[in-house]
C-alpha cells in the first residue's frame, strides 16, 4: 500500500478521533451530562431498596386505601405479611395522592390564565422602560422562600378563604356541592391551591415573557399589516407561536406545585383518613405529609413507618415523571402542528 495514502488515512482517523467520542472535552461533557440521569436513577433505586419491606407489607392496597395508622408503637411488633410490623399498622396513600393532584390542578387553573395575562402585559402592554422593573418584581416573587408564602397563607389567606370566599361561593353556587360549603376553617384545598398558584405564577410568567420577547418583529408586523388589532395579534399570532414554551412553562409550574412542601403543610389542614369532597375540605399532599410524619415515624422501631413514607416518595416521584413525560409529548405534538 502507498505510504502517503496510509499516512493520510491515519491522520484522518486521528482528526476524526479528536472530534469523536474519545475527545477528552466531549468525554467530560458526556460525563457531566450523565451525572443527572445517574443521580435520578440512584435516588429512585435507593428509595425502592429502602422502602422494600414496606412495599412488600403494603402491597397494592397502599395505592387504593385511605387509612394511615402507625399502629401501636408501644408494644412489640408482630410478624405480618412476612415483615415485623406494629400491631394495627396500616398504610394507604390515596388521601395524599388526591390532595396533591387536586391542589396542583386547581393551582394551575388559577395560575395559567393569570400568568399568561401578566406575561402578555409585560411584553406588549407596558413601555419598554417599565418592562424591566415589572419583570424584576415578578422574578422576586419566584425567589421568596416557601415558608414565607405559608405564613402569609395562615395569617391572611386562610381567614379570607373561611370568611369571604367560602360564603360567597356558597351563596352564588348553592347547587354545586363542590363549591357550596360555607363555614369551615379556611385550612384546606382552596387555601393550598391559592398559595401554590401564587408560587407558580412567577415561574410561568417569566418563561412565557421570555418567549414572547423573542418573537421576531416581522411576525408581529405581518399580523398588523393584515389589519389585526393588538388583541388579535397577541391571541392569534404571538401566543400560538410560543405554544411549546407555554406548555413547558406549565410543566415547570406543575413540578413546583406537586413537590411544594412547607407552604402547603401550613395551610392544608392536615387531612388524614378522608378524601377531599369540597373546595373547603382539609387535604394533605404527599410532600407535606412526609415532612409532618417523619418525626413520629422515627419512633417506630420496626422501621416500617419511615419505609412507608419512603414509599410515598416513590409514588410522588413516579407521578412527577409521568406528568413530565405526558407534558413533553404534548409539547412535541404542539410543535409539530
Amino acid at each position: 500500500m502507498d505510504s502517503t495514502s496510509a499516512g493520510l488515512a491515519r491522520s484522518a482517523v486521528k482528526a476524526k478521533g479528536r472530534r469523536g467520542p474519545t475527545n477528552p472535552f466531549r468525554m467530560a461533557l458526556i460525563g457531566l451530562a450523565g451525572v443527572i440521569p445517574v443521580v435520578i436513577a440512584a435516588v429512585l433505586l435507593f428509595l425502592v431498596v429502602y422502602a422494600w419491606p414496606a412495599i412488600r407489607f403494603n402491597g397494592i392496597d397502599f395505592l387504593l386505601t385511605k387509612t394511615w395508622d402507625l399502629g401501636n408503637l408501644y408494644a412489640d411488633p408482630v410478624p405480618r405479611h412476612g415483615v415485623l410490623a406494629p400491631i394495627g399498622a396500616t398504610y394507604g396513600c390515596l388521601v395524599f395522592v388526591a390532595g396533591t393532584l387536586a391542589s396542583s390542578f386547581l393551582a394551575l387553573l388559577v395560575a395559567v390564565p393569570v400568568s399568561l395575562g401578566i406575561a402578555v402585559f409585560l411584553a406588549e402592554g407596558v413601555k419598554r422602560q417599565l418592562r424591566t422593573p415589572f419583570a424584576i418584581v415578578v422574578e422576586l416573587l419566584a425567589v421568596v422562600p416557601s415558608v414565607v408564602y405559608g405564613l402569609w397563607g395562615i395569617i391572611v389567606l386562610v381567614p379570607i378563604a373561611a370568611h369571604i370566599i367560602a360564603p360567597v361561593l356558597a351563596a352564588v353556587f348553592p347547587f354545586i356541592p363542590f363549591l357550596a360549603q360555607a363555614g369551615g376553617s379556611g385550612f384546606g384545598l382552596l387555601s393550598s391551591s391559592l398559595v401554590l398558584a401564587l408560587m407558580v405564577i412567577p415561574v410561568i410568567t417569566i418563561t412565557v415573557f421570555d418567549a414572547l420577547t423573542r418573537i421576531p418583529k416581522e411576525a408581529k408586523e405581518a399580523a398588523y399589516a393584515l389589519g389585526t388589532t393588538k388583541f388579535e395579534m397577541v391571541f392569534f399570532t404571538m401566543l400560538p407561536m410560543i405554544r411549546p414554551a407555554v406548555i413547558g412553562a406549565v410543566i415547570l409550574g406543575l413540578g413546583r406545585a406537586l413537590g411544594e412542601t412547607m407552604a402547603v403543610l401550613m395551610v392544608s389542614g392536615g387531612a388524614l383518613n378522608y378524601m377531599p369532597t369540597t373546595l373547603m375540605s382539609p387535604i394533605s399532599t404527599m410532600a407535606s405529609f412526609i415532612l409532618s410524619q417523619l418525626d413520629s415515624a422515627e419512633q417506630d422501631e420496626s422501621g416500617l413507618a419511615v419505609q412507608s413514607l419512603a414509599e410515598i416518595a416513590i409514588v410522588l416521584f413516579v407521578i412527577t415523571v409521568v406528568v413530565n413525560i405526558v407534558a413533553r409529548l404534548l409539547v412535541r405534538k404542539g410543535a409539530s402542528r
Binding site: N72, M266, G270, L272, N273, S296
Partner: peptide, 29 residues
C-alpha cells in the same frame, strides 16, 4: 389508642395545625 401521632378519626370540620403556636393561632382564628 395513643402515640405522638395517631390515626385521627375523620371528623367533619376537624383541623390539623402545626406546632403549639399553630394550635393557639388556629383556635384563635
Amino acid at each position: 389508642a395513643f402515640g405522638t401521632t395517631v390515626s385521627w378519626p375523620a371528623v367533619q370540620g376537624g383541623i390539623g395545625a402545626i406546632g403549639n403556636p399553630g394550635m393557639v393561632q388556629t383556635a384563635a382564628q
